[in-house]
Design a protein around this nucleic acid. Structure first.
Lengths: 283, 283
DNA sequence: GTTCCGCATGAATCGATAG
DNA sequence: ACTATCGATTCATGCGGAA
């Protein structure tokens, strides 16, 4: 299987218009957050945020497959002592566009940004808004199952002895079914609260989220060979993870420095991982 | 100090109108959630929820002190495969009333309701919306400091035991300083994510939330002798905790059965804890 | 007196069935 | 077509009896 990644330099609204309808399985992105300071990169003023985002959401709705999913990682900032309302206004407006607001996951940031304020605690969570095009979308829950809670450790300690003996006897006599049942008991389905630490980032560029975040949703909503889109690529975390998980990916980035950085980082990985492999196999 | 609790039977909108302006330090409540079934207790249809709640919120704004806080525990249900939007619409409408939307805490329910569906995971979190009347509100952060790091999990039980003893000893002999100093060394400020399990084992009556939830916010936003209001009292958890923490409390409940149950449960506690004690001290 | 295990029970949600 | 009811699914928690 050949895994591709297409990286585009430019405004995502314009680039998205060049992509075909119904061609993407998952959109995972963390757009530039609203910012009162207008000089910073991607600093959209809170008052203008919804108007700025909506035409882009419309294009995303078009390129997404009917079975696809859009995961929007976002969190409103504090402005003048209040949480801004642009995120919840955006949800209402996107529904008017035709999006279904299927679910809101919570990313619990275990090691949140430090600090202390007299009237506020540290912000340790972000929204992961799930939007869909139709009620019938693809979801592969088994791909993200997690180990069962600690409570089972004490409970199953003694049972495991009996269990092992029974498993052996059953394997020997041809009853293999129950073994898998017991094995499955060690894994359970997760909830809509995702626990991940922010990555204490390395030398290069600070990513908005750790690799574990897009990884979780890519596994949950796509299969190998599907296509993942990040219209606000940034440091390329989504695309890098998609590539590692053998999903095709599309990335769009406005800033040349970011674009070049991701391009140089991503291309060799693809070449090394896939092209030589096929060549060896063919020779 | 004399701690009172006033319990009212009736519709909270009408009862609230009889309470004086600027008289409450904290409103902590969990109103009946929207429900498509119209026959159940408090079954408000999602489409009518905002209109139903707004006049009550207006009265709450009036009775709250300028330094006070309103904590609203709520979570939207799934309707037709989508999350309902009445909660976020309510935030926008309450701001138009004059409320400040200061913060949104997350209650992470570790033991969420079980179940499995093809397109959805278990819902393991609820909103705790913080509204204020002015930007200058009272907040006592030191009262809710938590043990540092995960290593302290096992010690949490012992610490809470110690904490109780400290509270008792404060009342008794007034020496608790050293204990609190020792505790503060290994304590850090919490974040805006609250981890609590639901209480599913109460044989008496099922409360919507565990005692730890109102306890955390009562400690955070009030001092001993302040007044806590729960306009949707239900099983009275808020008032019972307020009483235990030596805060005055006001409770309003529409259903006579709930009202009588809380009344019979709360009154003896007050009499036993405070009135005899003072009498003994005076004699 | 501990530790261990059985059991009931939750602010749930979906899909099928019935009126 | 649209609404109301019901069964099936599933996991962390704490109580109470047992070893």
């Amino acid at each position: 299987m050949e895994i591709k990644h297409d990286l585009y330099l430019g405004d995502c609204e314009e680039i998205l218009k060049t992509l075909p309808d119904n061609s993407v399985d998952l959109i995972f992105t963390s757009p530039p957050y609203a910012d009162q300071r207008k000089n910073t990169y991607g600093g959209i003023h809170p008052n203008n945020y919804v108007d700025w985002f909506l035409p882009k959401a419309e294009q995303m709705l078009r390129v997404l497959k009917p079975t696809g999913t859009f995961i929007l990682n976002i969190k409103e900032k504090v402005v003048n002592g209040e949480r801004s309302t642009y995120v919840i206004e955006l949800i209402l407006e996107m529904r008017k566009q035709g999006w279904l607001w299927t679910e809101e996951f919570i990313w619990h940031k275990k090691n949140s940004y430090p600090g202390k304020w007299p009237n506020r605690f540290r912000d340790a969570w972000e929204r992961l808004l799930q939007f869909n095009k139709s009620k019938k979308f693809n979801m592969y829950q088994e791909a993200v199952m997690v180990p069962i809670g600690d409570w089972a450790k004490n409970r199953l300690r003694n049972l495991s002895e009996t269990d092992k003996k029974r498993d052996e006897s059953k394997v020997g006599s041809g009853f293999g079914k129950n073994v898998s049942n017991w094995l499955n008991r060690s894994m359970v389905y997760p909830t809509n609260v995702v626990h991940l630490a922010t990555e204490c980032n390395n030398k290069k560029h600070s990513a908005a989220f750790p690799e574990g975040l897009p990884e979780w949703f890519i596994k949950l909503f796509t299969q190998v060979g599907d296509t993942v889109l990040d219209p606000f690529m940034g440091s390329g975390t989504t695309n890098i993870v998609a590539n590692r998980l053998q999903r095709n990916s599309i990335g769009i980035e406005l800033v040349p420095e970011y674009f070049e950085m991701v391009k140089s980082q991503l291309s060799p990985v693809e070449l090394f991982l896939f092209e030589p492999k096929e060549k060896y196999e063919n020779s």
